[in-house]
Design a protein around this nucleic acid. Structure first.
Lengths: 255, 255
DNA sequence: ATTCTAGCTTTGTCGGACAAATCCAGAATA
DNA sequence: TATTCTGGATTTGTCCGACAAAGCTAGAAT
């Protein structure tokens, strides 16, 4: 017969985890504001009463989580996690789960449509200017798939930004990171691919300027359908996202 | 006059980062499959030729990134990053960026609608069964806001799962993690809140069974509008997501 | 006032150490 | 023979101390 349960489970989290949690709590609760210094490793050693190796393991956890960063002089600061850094983690997860382009396409269709919708409603003059600038640069490289693909990705990031909805901005990022690298391949394979892409962007910007939801939705659909048609010339939508995209994400993270 | 650039930039990433990158590459490239052991710290020390402290810092990075895990016996294994663990990171980021409930609501509206859409098109019998089970349990706790809120969150996760779209599943999670904790408060404050919630779920499940897109879209809107009305009785939609939600996410992560 | 320099600090890495938990294989037992 | 026990070997989590390289700082030199 088991004894009555006098004791509750005791916390046996390793020390480095407790260090990480403690610092995380201070940051998330706002007691340490983004940008503020965390202190040197030596100080943390003294405050927590653990060894420096232990502190350092805790620091790595927070660093990877994007909550703290080292500045130019390697000192620790709290910081706002950057979306695209986090999104890279997610993209990696999607790759490992071997999601298909069909899933990617469907999700992106929804997310991009919502972004445009938001942009049409709430884009500021500054947003429009950024988009216009991007469009102008795109027009100059219509014939250069690599450059155009990069600008295309940027264009859609700017649209998400113009939606003024950071949740949407974050939600679309992982899919976009996997989605847009294909653009380069596709633009080259479809007749007038570059021109069609730029034209779609032009209409999207125009829709935003005129706050015309209909046009925004229409050209989003067309733009993505173009992608889809192009993609299907290369491969089946049911192909899973390939490992090569990780190379891409990898390279991007280093920058 | 500067000399001709004979040399390219040399890589000065710290050793622990190189260790992490090296292991990550093997996993992402598929040379180490999820579930397979990574080896002991000692083995890694020998393979990389660095100190154990260095290896351990690298391990922390990968652990936090969700790429490796320790099993019950604390041995290291590669693993598929779990969505809700990653999503917790994102939720935390959203909190720190002080996103508003309006952003959360708008994004969720889009994402939940897309999930239902997908579920209506592609839900399997197993999905339907899970949803039916959830509904049944929900009906038993209509009067218990806390229990109902939890089941509501689960219901929507199940719907996303039924959409068979993992990108969508992942994209909706961060917003959902912040969105659904409010349900508990709201259900209590709106007349017949619990009953309305369960009714909406019933109609959603029904729409999925009948593969009726219209009904699915309609009841998603109603369901979320109910949330919105309830929320606005408590606070403005322009309130930023509060720090208290982190407590929630925090507690959940421990489980 | 500006530049230089020599120390002080901090980080990244290393080697070694030890207790606690876990694993494993051979011994003892039913 | 199958199961349980047990003691040693591994492995992890933590600690201590050390050192080179890079960054910072304050006083010296110009």
């Amino acid at each position: 017969m088991p004894t009555a349960p006098f004791f509750r489970r005791i916390d046996v989290a390793p020390a480095y985890q407790k260090v990480a949690d403690a610092i995380e709590r201070e940051i998330v609760n706002g007691r340490i504001k983004p940008g503020e210094p965390i202190g040197t490793e030596q100080e943390l050693v003294q405050q927590f009463g653990v060894n420096r190796s232990t502190v350092r393991e805790g620091i790595r956890v927070l660093e990877e989580g994007g909550l703290i960063q080292r500045d130019s002089s390697r000192r620790l600061h709290a910081c706002l996690p950057r979306y695209n850094k986090l999104a890279t983690r997610l993209s990696r997860a999607l790759v490992l789960h071997e999601v298909t382009f069909r899933e990617l396409f469907e999700a992106s269709m929804t997310l991009e449509a919502a972004s445009i919708q938001g942009a049409v409603e709430r884009a500021t003059d500054a947003n429009v200017a950024e988009l216009a600038d991007n469009l102008e640069r795109s027009e100059k490289v219509v014939a250069d798939p690599a450059a155009l693909a990069e600008l295309d990705a940027e264009f859609h990031v700017l649209i998400a930004k113009a939606s003024q909805n950071r949740v949407l901005q974050l939600a679309r990022e992982p899919a976009a990171q996997l989605f847009f690298p294909t653009t380069e391949m596709i633009v080259g394979r479809i007749a007038e691919g570059g021109a069609r892409l730029v034209e779609a962007h032009r209409h999207l910007l125009d829709a935003i300027k005129r706050r015309d939801k209909e046009a925004g939705a229409l050209w989003t659909r067309r733009h993505l359908q173009d992608w889809r048609r192009g993609f299907e010339k290369i491969a089946s939508l049911d192909r899973s996202v390939e490992h090569m995209y990780m190379e891409h994400a990898h390279a991007a993270r280093r920058r």
